[in-house]
């Protein structure tokens, strides 16, 4: 297998529960060492996809290969190379953090010594050393998530699935989690992440697949997705209505919208350097002075809105 092969390769995934078609032909491919974000609202089919990719659920149709192993026929081989962190922290409440790690290491069939050493290393890395001897019941939400992720890394699997790793976390824990995830990528892991946070996908992922209603509706890098929605916009603000009116005459067709109350007018720019300079030159040639200017880049929220036709739900704190 060459270095550039897809480590995760799912083709034509379909899954239905009765008349509820959760997945309707989803393709997911992730290259070695890269991170892909599966982005979508609740009920889009993200978790179902992850469950199929991680051998927990059988698809009705389609095929999945992880590191070349078929998830149905070679499930045990797949399980040796994957780590899964689900939405609900899947750790044992009655055991301590350390006991959880060692137990999972043993279940990956590490030797006792290896499991123990690796557990200590992960406790250190995830800032859980002080809490290592306490039962998980006493952990905060952020600590649980960290332990949950640590547990899935006990055997350093080369392929990692993160199903909404930061849903329900406070902003600080979220940033901590992002740093940890970025470090995993730097260590060479291939990662598939699901999220309903657009900024999370933007921050972490090399590639983004947007799914909605069990279908892929867009795919590409964050940059490519943004470019689909349109170009950057230059917003100019003037000192008075005379200035605005003069600018409107000079700029003419380039204007996409004007607002008399705010004394602003907006032009589309394709090449940031050239177009901004050209616009400013035109204004200064006509001796029109501007009060301020700003460049707006489209956000992934704009992308999502234009692709699904729906307003993204409010940052989904309490969503399951």
């Amino acid at each position: 297998m060459s270095k550039n092969d897809y480590v995760i390769e799912a083709i034509g995934l379909e899954k239905s529960y009765g008349s509820n078609h959760v997945l309707q032909g989803v393709d997911v491919k992730v290259r070695r060492g890269s991170m892909l974000a599966l982005l979508g609202p609740n009920g889009a089919g993200k978790t179902t996809t992850v469950r199929i990719l991680s051998t927990l659920l059988k698809a009705d149709a389609g095929s999945v290969h992880i590191e070349g192993f078929d998830v149905v026929a070679d499930a045990d081989d797949v399980r040796k190379v994957i780590g899964l962190t689900g939405q609900s922290a899947a750790v044992d409440e009655m055991l301590t953090g350390r006991e959880n790690l060692v137990m999972m290491g043993r279940l990956y069939h590490l030797t006792k010594a290896s499991a123990k050493q690796r557990a200590e290393e992960l406790l250190e890395e995830f800032d859980l050393v002080d809490a290592a001897g306490r039962s998980v019941k006493t952990y905060s939400g952020g600590m649980r998530r960290r332990l949950d992720l640590a547990v899935s890394l006990i055997a350093t699997p080369p392929v990692i699935f993160l199903d909404e790793p930061t849903t329900g976390l406070d902003p600080r824990s979220r940033i901590t989690m992002w740093n940890i995830i970025n470090r995993l990528k730097e260590n060479g892991a291939t990662i598939l992440l699901t999220t309903q946070y657009l900024d999370e996908a933007d921050q972490l992922a090399d590639q983004i697949i947007v799914i909605d209603g069990g279908k892929v509706i867009a795919e590409g890098t964050a940059k490519e997705l943004k470019s689909k929605i349109g170009n950057d916009r230059l917003e100019l603000t003037f000192k008075d209505t005379q200035g605005l009116a003069a600018a409107e005459r000079v700029l003419g067709k380039a204007i996409v919208e004007s607002n008399k109350d705010d004394l602003t007018t907006t032009v589309l720019i394709v090449d940031t350097n050239k177009d901004v300079k050209k616009t400013l030159d035109m204004l200064s040639d006509s001796k029109i002075s501007i009060d301020s200017m700003a460049i707006h880049k489209p956000t992934l929220d704009d992308v999502f809105l234009s692709l699904t036709g729906k307003q993204k739900k409010d940052d989904g704190e309490e969503e399951k």
Binding site: T55, G86, V91, D92, L107
Partner: peptide
Amino acid sequence: KRGIVDRFRALPMSNLA
């Protein structure tokens, strides 16, 4: 009820354990 069975099932371990 808790998610832990999913965790166990994604491990290369015996199902009956």
